[in-house]
C-alpha cells in the first residue's frame, strides 16, 4: 500500500484513526464481566469488536498490526486523549461514547466519499458507527431523563469529559475534511441529544492548559500508561504467543 509509508500523510492519518479505534476498543473491553446487565455487556463487547476491526484494517495500512499495537511506547500512540480516559462509572463510558461515536460517524461519513483504502474502510465502518451513536444516544436519554441520581451522574460525566473534545477538531494530516463544518455538525448533534435528555451542554473549555489536546502529538494522560501495560504485557512477556 503505497499511500501509507511512515512520514507521509496517508500513514499519519491511518495511524491516528487506527489508534483511536484500538484504544477505545481496549477501554470498552474492560467492561467484560463488569457491565450493569448482561445485554449491556454484550453491547459494549460488540462495539469494541467493531472498533477493533477498524483498528486492524487501519494499522495494517501502516505496517504490522501486532507490532504497532503491542510494541510501541506510549509517546508513539496518536489517539485523541478522549478515548484513553478511564471508563469511570457507566455514565462516563456513555458520555465518552456519545462524544466519540457522534464525531466518528460524521468524520467517516465525509471520508467515505473519497478514494483509497481509508475511504473504503470509512464507507464500511460508518454504518457500524451509526449503531454505536444510536446506542450512546439511547443511554444518554435514559440516564439524563431518568432518576435524580442518574441525571446527576450523566451531567457530571458530560462535564468531566468535555475538555477532551476540543482535540477532535484538530486537523489530521492526510485527511481532506472541513474541520470547522465537522465541529458545527458535531455540536448540533450532541446538543440535540443532551437537550432532549434534559441535560445541559457543558460550557467549560474544550481543552486544558497542560495536556488536553495533545494526543495526536503523542502526549497522553496519566491513566494511558496503565492501559498500555495491560494491553501489551502478554505480547511483550511471550512474544509470538498464540492459542
Amino acid at each position: 500500500m503505497s499511500g501509507a509509508r511512515p512520514g507521509n500523510p496517508g500513514h499519519h492519518a491511518a495511524l491516528a484513526l487506527g489508534d483511536d479505534a484500538l484504544i477505545l476498543a481496549q477501554r470498552l473491553g474492560e467492561w467484560s464481566g463488569h457491565a450493569p446487565e448482561l445485554e449491556e455487556e454484550v453491547a459494549l463487547a460488540n462495539i469494541a469488536l467493531d472498533l477493533l476491526g477498524q483498528a486492524r484494517a487501519l494499522l495494517s495500512l501502516c505496517g504490522d498490526e501486532d507490532e504497532l499495537a503491542f510494541r510501541r511506547e506510549e509517546r508513539a500512540f496518536r489517539n485523541v486523549q478522549l478515548v484513553e480516559r478511564p471508563n469511570g462509572d457507566f455514565a462516563h463510558t456513555i458520555a465518552r461514547q456519545l462524544y466519540f461515536s457522534t464525531w466518528q460517524e460524521l468524520l467517516y461519513g465525509r471520508l467515505a466519499g473519497g478514494t483509497g483504502p481509508i475511504a473504503a474502510l470509512a464507507a464500511k465502518a460508518v454504518k457500524e458507527c451509526a449503531y454505536h451513536r444510536d446506542h450512546a444516544e439511547q443511554w444518554t436519554l435514559r440516564l439524563g431523563d431518568g432518576t435524580e441520581e442518574s441525571h446527576r451522574r450523566m451531567q457530571a460525566a458530560l462535564d468531566a469529559l468535555w475538555r477532551y473534545t476540543g482535540e477532535l477538531w484538530q486537523p489530521v494530516e492526510g485527511l481532506d475534511v472541513d474541520w470547522d463544518a465537522l465541529e458545527s455538525a458535531w455540536r448540533a448533534g450532541v446538543t440535540g441529544v443532551v437537550t432532549r435528555a434534559t441535560l445541559g451542554v457543558p460550557e467549560g473549555p474544550q481543552s486544558s492548559p497542560w495536556a488536553a489536546g495533545a494526543g495526536r502529538q503523542g502526549v497522553h494522560t496519566e491513566p494511558f500508561g496503565r492501559l498500555l501495560a495491560e494491553m501489551q504485557h502478554l505480547h511483550r512477556s511471550h512474544p509470538g504467543a498464540s492459542w
Binding site: 449491556e40 463487547a45 449503531y131 446506542h135
Partner: peptide
C-alpha cells in the same frame, strides 16, 4: 438489545409467544 450473540444481530422478544429471538439487523 441492539446487540446480541454476534455483531450482526439484535436481540428481540415476541409479546405473543413470549420467546426471545435474534434479528439479523440491517446494515
Amino acid at each position: 438489545s441492539r446487540f446480541s450473540s454476534t455483531a450482526c444481530k439484535a436481540l428481540r422478544r415476541c409479546a405473543s409467544c413470549r420467546e426471545p429471538f435474534d434479528h439479523f439487523k440491517e446494515l
